[in-house]
Amino acid sequence: MTKLHIFQKVANVIVYLFFLSATVYTVVSPANGDIGEGHTYITPSFWISYVWTLIHILLGGFVIYQWFEPAHDAAIHGVGWHFVISVLLSSAWLGLLKSGHELIGFIFVLLTASSVSYVFYNLEKNYDATTIYEKLFVHAPFSLWHGWIVFSAVINFFQVVSHTNEDGPGVWSRIFVILGLFFLSSTAVGYVEYKKKKGDVTGALVIGLGLLAVFTNQQDPWIHWFALAFAIITLIYPARPFVFKLVGRDSTAENAPLLG
C-alpha cells in the first residue's frame, strides 16, 4: 500500500465523518427529511428519508472495510476519489435544499448522481463481489446510494418546476407527476434488467419504497393510486429474474438505468 493509497483511505474516513455530521439532523428531522423542505405533489412521506440511515451504516462499513486487503483494489480503483467527490457534492446539495436554493440544489444533485453513477457502473463492470463482505460493504452502499439519488433528483426537479395550491392539482399537474412516477418505475425496471441475470435489485427496491412513500403522503386520488400501482410493479419486478431461473428461461433484455 503506497502513501497515496493511505492518504486516499484517510480522506475517505474524514469525508465520511463530515458527511455523517452534515446529514444526521435531516435523517432524524420530523419534517420532509433531506429531500428538501418544499412540498410538491410528488413529495414522499418523511419515513423514506430513513433510507439514509442504512446508506450511512453501509458506507461506514465501507470506510472500515477498505483497510482490509480483499477490499483494496475495489476501494482504490473501483471507487477511487469519487467517494470524496460524491460526499462533498451531496453535502453541498443538502445544504442548498435546506437553505431554499432548489434550482442550484438540482444542479448539484445531478452532479452527485453523475459521480455516484461512475462508482456504481465501475464496480458492476470491473469488480465483481466474490464475498459477502464485498457485497455488503462495497457494492451495496453504492447501489443504495445510486437508487436514492435518482429518486431524490426527481423530487428535487419537481421542487424547481412545480408548486401546490389550495384547490389541489390540475390536470396538467397530475399528468406531469404521473410521468415522473412512470420515469422512476421504468428506471427501477432498468436496474433489474441491467447486466443479464445480474440486475441491481437493491437500487430498484429503494425506488420502489420511494414510490410507496409518495403513495402514503399524497392524497389526490390520481396521484395516490398511480403511485401505489407503480410501487407494486417496482417492488414485485425484481422477482422476475428468479422466476425465469426457476422455469429455465433467460431474460435477454439488457437495459441500463435511465439516469447516470
Rank of each mutant, 00 (worst) to 15 (best):
L94Y: 13
E134G: 04
A231I: 04
F230L: 13
T112D: 04
L235D: 06
I14V: 15
E69L: 13
V160P: 03
V15M: 01
A31W: 12
I132F: 11
I85S: 07
D167L: 07
I233L: 13
Y133D: 11
I85D: 09
F120P: 01
S251I: 12
Y118E: 14
F244A: 15
V177C: 07
S45W: 05
F7T: 15
K9M: 02
T40C: 07
G33I: 06
H72A: 13
G248K: 02
L103P: 02
G199C: 04
S162Q: 07
H56N: 10
P241K: 04
T112A: 11
T252A: 14
V28P: 04
P257M: 05
L246I: 12
I85T: 12
V79I: 12
F83V: 05
A11L: 11
F68I: 06
F18I: 00
H101L: 15
V201G: 10
H101V: 14
I6N: 10
I178P: 01
L94E: 02
G248R: 01
I236M: 10
T131E: 02
L179T: 03
L96S: 03
L235P: 00
L259R: 08
G100S: 08
D220W: 00
V63I: 12
K98H: 14
V160I: 11
I207L: 10
L258A: 10
N32C: 06
F142D: 08
I149K: 04
P241T: 05
A153N: 04
A229H: 04
G38R: 06
G199S: 03
H77F: 08
F68M: 10
N122L: 12
L20Y: 06
L96A: 08
K195C: 09
W148Q: 13
I64G: 03
L184S: 10
R249F: 07
D220Y: 00
F151I: 09
E166T: 10
H39Y: 14
F62M: 02
I104R: 02
L96I: 06
A231G: 09
A92L: 08
Y127Q: 06
W148R: 13
G199P: 00
G33V: 06
E134Q: 15
F19P: 00
H56M: 06
I57D: 05
Q8V: 02
D167A: 10
D250A: 14
W67F: 11
F151R: 03
V160F: 04
V150N: 09
F157T: 09
S186M: 12
F137W: 09
D73K: 12
A31N: 12
S29L: 02
F83L: 13
M1A: 10
L259W: 05
F106K: 10
F19V: 00
G210A: 08
L94D: 01
W52C: 04
W172G: 10
W67E: 02
P141V: 11
F151V: 10
S186T: 13
W172Y: 10
T112E: 03
Q159Y: 01
L136D: 11
A153C: 08
I236N: 04
S21K: 05
L97I: 14
A129Q: 07
S173Y: 00
